[in-house]
């Protein structure tokens, strides 16, 4: 060991910082800042608190009227009822039917819309053709037209295709409406990939699909995560297309929730309604909590070039 290395080892603390010690920050500004943040957080969390608390109470306790009071007697009865027994129309098997309907709409819609959009985005960046810019402009234009305008033509279209009322009809609708935004997302991400990489792959004998599947897609995991999150939450929360394009036995969870909560017959079971609402919101919430960090990273990756 050399002399300089030994002396460095003898003094592990390294150079001593000079100047006054930084004070701990319990300043007026910080109190104001955190105070405001806490107040806002409480304000936004309060409805959730009310929902959770109410869903754990029995009906007699709710009738007392103290909506902020915690339950005296905790009961999971409303949750069980919301999931498996609540009635909508003739069916009395609760939200579970809607949940599984939603899942069987969600999975193919997410897979299909992302597959179609990522390939479109890839073709629009790496394989420009005559009129590809016009094509892209028209596609993006679709993102600015209100859905309601296209509702009736779509119904006719699906009827003619014989898909009206089926799950696959709804899957098709979700795929089409996902395309503008997702194609834009993928196109912009793929545009940051150096052109030379695709050239190199072509010299290496890779064709359209090989370049996409072996080179581009594995490089673009963050943007696929973003797309999955956008689509899962968007499609799960969809109400309009669900109510228009399905039949009562294939209603997605959101539509069924509405039918439970807005049922005008009998007693309003607030606890069951609250439980049903939380259950419906659980999927997008979970997606956010699990993938929040990845989501931010994916969005940022689109902005910053590596």
């Amino acid at each position: 060991m050399s002399d300089s290395a030994r002396s460095a080892a003898a003094d592990p603390s390294g150079p001593v910082p000079t100047g006054p010690r930084p004070r701990r920050r319990v300043s007026r500004g910080n109190v104001m800042l955190y105070g405001t943040l806490i107040v806002i957080a409480v304000y936004y969390l309060l409805p959730l608190y009310v929902m959770v608390v109410t869903s754990l109470k029995g009906m007699p306790e709710i009738r007392v009227g103290n909506i902020f009071a915690p339950p005296v007697e905790v009961t999971f009865e409303p949750w069980v009822k919301a999931w498996g027994e609540a009635c909508t129309g003739l069916n009395c098997d609760g939200l579970s039917r809607g949940f599984w309907n939603s899942v069987s709409i969600l999975v193919p819609s997410v897979v299909l819309s992302i597959a179609v959009s990522s390939i479109s985005g890839y073709a629009l960046t790496a394989w420009r053709f005559r009129g590809s810019e016009t094509f892209f402009t028209i596609l993006i234009f679709g993102a600015f037209i209100p859905y309601q305008v296209m509702l009736y033509p779509l119904v006719i279209l699906l009827r003619e295709l014989g898909l009206y009322g089926s799950l696959w009809g709804l899957v098709l609708v979700h795929t089409i409406f996902g395309m503008p935004i997702l194609t834009l997302l993928f196109r912009n991400y793929f545009a940051t990939v150096p052109k030379e990489l695709i050239k190199a792959a072509r010299v290496d004998g890779a064709e359209f699909w090989t370049i996409f599947l072996k080179i581009l897609a594995p490089m673009s995991l963050p943007i696929f995560v973003v797309a999955v999150i956008l689509q899962v939450t968007g499609i799960w929360n969809d109400f309009l297309f669900g109510v228009v394009f399905t039949r009562p036995e294939t209603y997605p969870m959101t539509v069924q929730l509405n039918n439970i909560v807005n049922s005008v017959q009998g007693v309003k079971e607030y606890n069951v309604n609250m439980a049903a609402t939380i259950l419906t919101g659980l999927v997008p919430l979970t997606v956010y909590f699990v993938s929040g960090k990845l989501f931010v990273r994916g969005i940022a990756a689109g902005a910053v070039k590596g």
């Binding site: 990489l197 050239k199 010299v203």
Partner: peptide, 13 residues
């Protein structure tokens, strides 16, 4: 032909 690029163009994954 074989080609070598300015940005190396290696497949990062």
């Amino acid at each position: 032909i074989g080609m070598v690029f300015q940005s190396y163009a290696l497949y990062p994954q």
